[in-house]
Design a protein around this nucleic acid. Structure first.
Lengths: 245, 245
DNA sequence: CGCATTTTTGAAGCGGATCAATTAAAGTGG
DNA sequence: CCACTTTAATTGATCCGCTTCAAAAATGCG
């Protein structure tokens, strides 16, 4: 836990991707803000089964949202959480979480006073509409991923993931020309894409072979964006602006 | 198009599953209501790429929400839409739809004046919170389905789908003791579960063989609920109450 | 009743899983 | 900073679940 960053000084908010705030909104959100915490890589931020729980905004670092299934310790990674993404709505609204969130790198988060979310709705209904808007956008992204898991093969899934993550990072100002940080292991990719660790390794080798993309010591390099997009039927991510709490 | 059913006379609203309305809410929603339309089986209600578009509540009948992928005419069915479910939010909020909705049986829908959704938010912020709540519930269901597609085999997927649909119908008062209407064809099941038509047929035959469940001329019969639930790791659907527009 | 669509079933092939052995990388303590 | 231990990535061999294709049976429908 360290000193809170004032919302007006938030490095994320300056990015065009995020929705600008009116003065009184900024004030209100500043009041919702509770603390700023730092967690180590691998630390759990939210644990499935947790009751209540806070609302968070990931401030920096990466995390994964996932579920464990059955008794066989099978894991499905549902999303990669990037800076600016919102966490804990399920716990707050439904009282109980069915997924867990784990930090992938060391990370820091803004902790928000959940109790005030309903007040925010009442006092800033247009903000409620913005929240609704990004929930609908997320739902669309869920639709996309269900289609991917249901209908695309291993290489297509991998290509889609690479491009989507790259573009999401780019929107946040965290991507290079054709490279970005990429702290996901083979096992993570497998658990995200519904594949085995071994097969992920083979697909990755094939991508290197065909000079499409490669992962090198925690960095993703996209060599042939067009070819990857074509392979996966990738059409870009939602343009924003997105609300930031 | 036929005469509108007044909201107070809506057969769905009497079900405990749906959130009761305060007097002024009922009035407001009655004002949002625009028309009541009837569509034939196979008719498209929403077409991908559509701009604008109305908000709907499915009043009776079944529909599917789906996407077409690639050039190969592959289809992913994203959801089975049942009476009381809400449609068209994506079109209304984001301006453009990426999925389509097709009636599975002859069906009727309430058409809502979308323009008023923001007013509803302003005048009934608690209603906005209810909407938020079911969006979070739906997101959880999406998480579940992503886990299912990513990690479960054909028989488990089928078992899960049967139980989920049965329970959703039950909440709406549309299920029998251990049977319910089931107008999905083998192709629909395949497109929903990420399988081939042929394999669906084999899994179904296996279910009959093992006396777990069967589909007989448009009716689903669940013989061994416990065994199916155990097979799929099924744990029931969200209890409600759910908002109904 | 006859045509069209859907379902069923069989045979063959393939994508990806699994298992196991090998290599590489990343921590860890001295 | 190095040897040791642990963890993760690679690779090969084999297996299995599911797909594909094609034909036959069943079902629906005008």
């Amino acid at each position: 836990m360290r000193e809170a960053v004032p919302c007006t000084a938030c490095w994320l908010r300056s990015r065009a991707y995020f929705r600008p705030l009116g003065d009184d909104e900024a004030q209100f959100i500043q009041l919702m803000k509770n603390a700023h915490i730092t967690v180590a890589a691998r630390a759990k931020v939210i644990e499935a089964g947790e009751v209540g729980g806070s609302l968070f905004t990931l401030y920096d670092g990466w995390a994964i949202r996932y579920r464990m299934l059955g008794e066989t310790q099978r894991r499905q990674i549902l999303d990669v959480v990037l800076p600016g993404d919102f966490l804990g709505l399920e716990a707050h609204i439904l009282g109980l979480t069915e997924h867990s969130v784990q930090a992938l790198t060391s990370a820091s988060l803004c902790v928000l006073r959940g109790r005030r979310l309903s007040e925010l709705f009442e006092q800033h209904p247009d903000w409620g509409l913005s929240l609704l808007r990004w929930m609908v956008e997320d739902q669309r992204r869920d639709d996309t991923w269900r289609s991917i898991l249901g209908r695309l093969d291993a290489a297509q899934r991998m290509a889609y993931l690479f491009l989507e993550i790259f573009d999401r990072l780019e929107q946040r100002g965290l991507a290079g020309e054709q490279s970005c940080r990429f702290p996901l292991s083979g096992q993570h990719l497998a658990d995200m894409l519904g594949l085995s660790r071994a097969h992920v390794s083979r697909v990755l080798a094939d991508f290197v072979q065909r000079r499409l993309a490669r992962i090198d010591s925690g960095t993703l390099l996209i060599h042939e964006r067009a070819a990857l997009a074509d392979l996966a039927g990738y059409r870009g991510v939602a343009a924003g602006p997105r609300v930031l709490l």
